[in-house]
Design a binder for these strands. Structure first.
Lengths: 240, 240
DNA sequence: GTATATCACATGTATAGTCAAGCTCATTAA
DNA sequence: TTAATGAGCTTGACTATACATGTGATATAC
């Protein structure tokens, strides 16, 4: 069940997308929205806080919440999204080829970290957009908590299987993006010549209870790679 | 002046960094923290919300707030940080060479967007870490709101000048990261051979009142490029 | 005419309270 | 012994209220 402020945030998002609220104009005031949705101002503020965090609106003290231009925020790979979710939003013709699916042990080193090696399902998938290979995804799905992994899960949406079928809640991820020379075998898979550079995204994905459940090495064709990010200047400094 | 929950968030962050609260353990409960800081539970919750957003803690319903491993979150280029802030956090020996500083007009096209061309200060700076060139930054600082730009601002911290001297508040940015072939001239500046790929980050940076004030093209040496991101799975879907 | 004061309204911060729901553990009942 | 219950903790959601502070327009005083 979703909370009231989640529903309001989604409703506002939908109204913004359908231009019932136009970019550059102000939303109704928090009080007015509270009356509209029959809720308190704090609940409205939580909904608006979500939209602000995602870069859909900008709150200005004493004035109101102005709607930002959505055009400038297309194709966000920021956040945690599955390939299926990503391509669906962009309405692209996508395809996934499962190259390998075996049981093995997870690597003990990742992103310069030492991890405990655990039983895992190893999954290798090639992603194509408009028949062109763009990404090679290599996943380790740790065996607790993911004990069984049907073949169809990899072909369809892995996250859909994990969240819908297994009832697990994916919570957060840390990612490291680098540019590296890749082995000739993988370069060929992506249709690249030898001695080529590729964008490598290494992710550690965690569940709600902070359990690590997925390690992913995602290799992108550099000429197809595009990463769009929205960032807010944080007040809390990271220094001592 | 900072708010109470900002101060609490910073205090908790500092205590986590200094391992007064160890990774993997739970923070005191919201009620206990409220007593500790002599404040209400809601105020504590706002502070904890900030820390959760930044990936420092994970809140678990019914249990508490668990402290995540900071080691796994080093070198975040996510967010909006100036080069100086970035290198200071990492305690790196950095240097900035101002290559060019002239008045010109801002480009009318950027990231596939059409913008209105405006008077601007154009700034070209080479960033070195440990005497090695790693980034070439090309900035357009729009003339309203940034009318005067002393030479020292570019050499020291540009954001310090904008925030401290001019009293402007930097609020948010949209970034697009791609990998591109770059002109031989710029490749030489970064110590790269010809026909080389580089990571190009194009940013639009805005003030609190949604005024665009900065356009940046940041060209990174691919072998030195590293982007670390923390992401939470969002509940609010971007689809219709 | 111009500057100032004021007022209405916007968001920001803080507090106190209520109820729901998840987790842990001890007690109880079968 | 085992299973169910419930107390007491936790966080999540929501409401109501108060006051501070920024914005903008109007009215007032000079």
């Amino acid at each position: 069940m979703q909370s009231k402020y989640d529903l309001i945030a989604q409703d506002l998002l939908s109204k913004i997308k359908h231009q019932q609220y136009a970019a550059g104009t102000f939303l109704p005031s928090e009080k007015q929205l509270g009356d509209l949705y029959s809720t308190s101002r704090e609940t409205i503020r939580k909904a608006l806080g979500q939209l602000e965090q995602q870069g859909l609106i900008q709150k200005i003290r004493g004035k109101g919440s102005i709607i930002l231009d959505l055009q400038r925020l297309t194709f966000p790979i920021s956040g945690i999204e599955s390939f299926k979710e990503l391509t669906q939003h962009q309405k692209l013709v996508s395809e996934t080829q499962v190259l390998k699916q075996i049981k093995t042990m997870s690597p003990s080193h990742f992103n310069g970290l030492t991890l405990t090696s655990q039983p895992a399902h190893y999954l290798e998938r090639l992603r194509l957009i408009n028949q062109v290979p763009v990404i090679l995804d290599c996943d380790y799905l740790l065996s607790p908590p993911i004990t069984t992994l049907p073949k169809t899960a990899g072909e369809n949406s892995l996250y859909e299987y994990i969240e819908q079928e297994l009832g697990l809640t994916i919570s957060y991820a840390s990612k490291v993006v680098t540019v590296e020379r890749i082995p000739e075998v993988t370069a060929k898979l992506l249709g690249l010549g030898s001695e080529q550079l590729a964008v490598v995204v290494r992710s550690l994905v965690y569940l709600e209870d902070t359990t690590l459940f997925q390690l992913t090495i995602s290799i992108h064709r550099p000429d197809q790679f595009k990463f769009v990010d929205f960032a807010r200047r944080t007040k809390v400094t990271q220094e001592a």
